[in-house]
Design a protein around this nucleic acid. Sequence first.
DNA 1: ATAGGTTTTGTCAAGCTTTTGTACAT
DNA 2: ATGTACAAAAGCTTGACAAAACCTAT
Lengths: 294, 294, 294
Amino acid sequence: MDVTPLGVRIGELARRVGVAPETLRAWERRYGVLRPARTHGGYRVYGLDDELRARRMRELIDGGWAAGEAASAVTAQASAAAWPGDRPERVRDEAAGEMLRALLRFDAAAGNVAFDRVLAARTLDGALRDVVLPVLREVGDGWERGDVSVGQEHFASELLTGRLRGLAREWGGGLGPHAVLACPAGERHDLGLLCCGLALHRRGWRITYLGADTPAAALEAAVAAVDPARVVIGAVQEAPLREAEDGLGALAGRVQVAVGGHGAVPELAERIGALRLEGDAVAGAVALTRAAER
Amino acid sequence: MDVTPLGVRIGELARRVGVAPETLRAWERRYGVLRPARTHGGYRVYGLDDELRARRMRELIDGGWAAGEAASAVTAQASAAAWPGDRPERVRDEAAGEMLRALLRFDAAAGNVAFDRVLAARTLDGALRDVVLPVLREVGDGWERGDVSVGQEHFASELLTGRLRGLAREWGGGLGPHAVLACPAGERHDLGLLCCGLALHRRGWRITYLGADTPAAALEAAVAAVDPARVVIGAVQEAPLREAEDGLGALAGRVQVAVGGHGAVPELAERIGALRLEGDAVAGAVALTRAAER
Amino acid sequence: MDVTPLGVRIGELARRVGVAPETLRAWERRYGVLRPARTHGGYRVYGLDDELRARRMRELIDGGWAAGEAASAVTAQASAAAWPGDRPERVRDEAAGEMLRALLRFDAAAGNVAFDRVLAARTLDGALRDVVLPVLREVGDGWERGDVSVGQEHFASELLTGRLRGLAREWGGGLGPHAVLACPAGERHDLGLLCCGLALHRRGWRITYLGADTPAAALEAAVAAVDPARVVIGAVQEAPLREAEDGLGALAGRVQVAVGGHGAVPELAERIGALRLEGDAVAGAVALTRAAER
DNA sequence: ATAGGTTTTGTCAAGCTTTTGTACAT
DNA sequence: ATGTACAAAAGCTTGACAAAACCTAT
């Protein structure tokens, strides 16, 4: 996020972003959101990051934010991003690597210690995004490559499930909209969905969790009982989701459905009539929350 | 049945139930059927149970009952258990009934409270033997009978899994003998095995848990890695265990194997060369521990 | 739940939720449901949780609830569902702080919730090491400084004793080695010892707990009865341990004795002929277990 | 069922301050 | 380009009001 060689002057930036040059100057003077370089003659020269910040400012303000609040949000985010994570890239890998090694040698004690440490040193989002989900991915990939035995995979997912479940207590309560989470019948990997549920709960959602391998009828019953604002389907594989296509399509007529995971290919999502969540579980939670804010 | 935080005032309740506010006040004064709380200023605040009672009153009166008779019927019914009496009461424990009702109505908060209460009031063995396992059995049976939807069954087992996993943390360490726990490939109900693991851990065992649907190869890998004193196989159904017979038989040559659950019929256990655990999960843990003491 | 820096002002929030700004202000003033931050100039700045609360208020009111009742329901639920923050690093202190505050204001409900939450999110070792023991230490120090009254100290230790005892149930059985735990006569603080016992039990030990203020004769009798592999003495103060020196020294000839706690100074431990446990209760359990593994 | 009194709660008003986009003079 | 100024829009606080809802007692 350092200096980026864009190099536009104020008029051009104003045109691109869609605000008056005076406004840009005011934002700079009042909140310090923009940090243009100067030409020899004193003209402002903006970089790419300036453009991004200005754009974000405008989006937020259009979305009803007050300029001052938008500014502090934008600068906070910028400084957070400029401080890459908690420490350089390697810590991330290190924590994930430690956990991975422990799990692969069936060492529950070390795995738990690693989990505790990760959770103590990061936000929940960060822990999920940078450690738990990568570890899961690595275990899955290793299993496909044959580097990881089924036993290791089972042990790892059992331990992580247990720990994540501990964080999931009380997630049925709260004030926000209600979401029902499930994997389609035949899909047995629900750890990603579990992570998504945790990230959703941190954003205020109330979670009703049906978990892996949930037949369409089960989902219907739960939806009828709790009347959620959203149903979130997690699909690592494509086949089970395809099997469930009809049932989910019918459901999508009555309640908003979202699908995420590797198996949720765009074409399938569209046929079901569901919002497709891109990226990892945390990104999915972010997207859902943003969609619900309107 | 607890007081439920509904919180409507007399006008709203009157509208909902379909009687005049004066009538509600009269019912309260004359028969004591309603027990509203009061605001600081003296306003009545009704709970969910009040609404249910008032509704029943109105139904009875519409059906020709005299108000006084209706009232005594309603209060009598309220003090008795509200669970439909026509089903075979296998779950006669009050705590188990409370938990069951909460789970069947997708009420995570109440389910958790019930779980906490059960655990606070009993030993772990007692909680598993007298509440958790019976509830699981009842849910399973109800599902077979068609009284319990798949959704309810999923929700119940997810919630209980989560809570039991919470108790199971750190069960991999210590000084006792080591046990590896798994269900055969194709067997997806591992809650009984989880309970057995908890009861074992309480008795000093170190647990390595592979969980549901574990292929023979996975089990082999784990056994090779941790060299346990016992392998415990949980089988609710018979077919998966029968499928796994050969692999388990081979394993039984190198390590002591035990099989438990409905699917573990004596003939199969014998052919595998495994100790057969009779009775429920807790009884199985007792038997295993006794066998290990010698 | 208190996390997200939403940052809208009252007009925008009013528009989003569908309520007049005056009403939002009234809700804040009268019921305290909303807790906006303020700009330098005094403008209200609302967070995501505020929006959720306001939304829920409106839903309830639309559903016929009286505003005051809706407010108390919303705040109650919000405090129940509030998950300790999103902040890294501090999470530890955060959980301990929450528990400490609850205990110091004699709030048993909040204290229990905090305890449950801590236990759900961590391993037992982690909960004891990072939360329970620090809280105990803080209470003790505060009492010495005069910041904490005797009543507060009593309340805190009673509540924690009760909860820890709940975890200690059934810890006498199993397959592991046996340990007898006691404080010397005159020593009345046994919470540390209790924690040590829990950590030991998690490692497979069978515990026989004699608790605070145990005369030498009682200890002798217990040792004679159960023939333990270890006797663990917890001493916060030095004087009682010194008093018991002779008796313990004699005992140390027949059974391995370990002493831990502030009062267990090296010189005393040596004269008694006991292993001295350094560090906190969990570290002591680790050391004992390691010693027993050989 | 009515009467007479109280509580609750959304809304308004007045007077003043803050915020923020834009305009203007240098 | 800069700094100052300005004015509209949005907010703040205090206090009050009035309709609706609720209370008790007759």
